[in-house]
Design a protein around this nucleic acid. Structure first.
Lengths: 208, 208
DNA sequence: CCCTAATTCAAACACGCGTTTAAAATAGCC
DNA sequence: GGCTATTTTAAACGCGTGTTTGAATTAGGG
């Protein structure tokens, strides 16, 4: 395995677990068993490494996600919000075949990206992968055309918050749930629980 | 104003804005116009300062919140979930009379507390203020008794995520919303938008 | 007023951080 | 095999961090 790949693999796990600011290059390089200077040699800086970690996942996810959402948009029948959010399921779970725990790791990274670093990753993602956002917005609009764009703006951010926050602490939550309720819980189970929740939230009656 | 209070006032604003890890004691003390060593003299350590900042808000909030939720629990009629979540409104907005921008600051701090520091603040809050959680859980159970405790566990964490994530980036979101939709938005408006969302999410039909 | 306790202050400490350097090792091509 | 370009390595750099120190200053009660 190349040094670059070893660094990316070690970095994504540590970033997901402890955040971008909370993870040092020394932790990453010693976990990856490469020299400290290798990060700056191969990636230029820590910030560029963060982008590279996210891009590796986004490049795998975004085509599948865009096409799933696009399919809903061009379909003749009106979709339900449950169907719109369920469109995320296959692309997200596909990350598990791409990497062990890929789905969980990616969602945790996404959560970190929105809270760490005063949100520079939010900018990076929205500018580098705008297709995901526009297709998603269109699909939601098709499912629930009465929502004004402002109401949709807030509800989509509420939804993002639900997903991203839950996933950034999903390991701890899954641990608690397994102890308290004495049964196996995995990331796919959590996603399946969250879909009806966010779908109902977005579908909530409008108060004007 | 006492040195302790000057430190607390400066710290809460910086913590809310840049996170606990992202704020240095030197920033805090220069903002508060006190000596650097004053933090360790008055609070012992940075970690204790963080706890003190959170406690000042929680001591103001938790009695009002507990009694509002308790009132719902002892009332004879079954509450709606909207009523349960609306019980948060008055106690939260009361923080605005307690301090300028108190509501917004507190909710941002809460958001930081769950994502920074591998969640030691989550432990601090749940152990120091358990009454809020138990009363809340009881009120939700009364409004929606069909939910099993496991389903409730997840939906309450989804709700927490919605609130906490939205509020921890509420300043940025409010800026975007004001530009895009050309109208004034404040924290109370966001809270009123989020209540029907989370109420509908928790009330979502159960998939078994 | 004076003495003691509480507080403030400037300075330094030890440490971890991201980054840079320049030499050593390795790889790949002619 | 020899030469060049790429990669790896150990060491150091400069900086910012939380914390500690001990002296200077300020309050406050007898």
């Amino acid at each position: 395995m190349s040094t670059k790949t070893k660094i990316l693999n070690a970095a994504e796990v540590l970033f997901a677990d402890k955040g971008f600011n909370g993870t040092s290059l020394r932790e990453i390089t010693s976990q990856a068993e490469v020299n400290l200077a290798a990060v700056n040699y191969h990636f230029g800086s820590k910030k560029e490494l963060i982008k590279a970690v996210m891009s590796r996942y986004m490049n795998e996810l975004s085509p599948r996600l865009e096409s799933a959402l696009h399919a809903i948009c061009v379909d003749e029948v009106q979709p339900t919000l449950n169907e719109v959010f369920s469109a995320f399921l296959e692309p997200l779970l596909h990350l598990n075949t791409f990497k062990d725990n890929g789905t969980s790791t990616f969602l945790q990274l996404l959560g970190r990206g929105f809270t760490d670093n005063q949100g520079f990753l939010r900018w990076f993602l929205t500018t580098q992968y705008p297709g995901v956002f526009t297709n998603f917005t269109q699909a939601v609009h098709k499912a629930y055309p009465e929502l004004t764009s402002e109401e949709m703006f807030w509800r989509l951010h509420f939804t993002m918050g639900t997903i991203v926050f839950t996933m950034s602490s999903s390991d701890a939550l899954i641990d608690i749930a397994q102890n308290d309720f004495d049964r196996e819980v995995d990331i796919a189970g959590v996603i399946k629980q969250v879909i009806p929740y966010v779908a109902a939230g977005v579908a909530a009656p409008i108060i004007r």
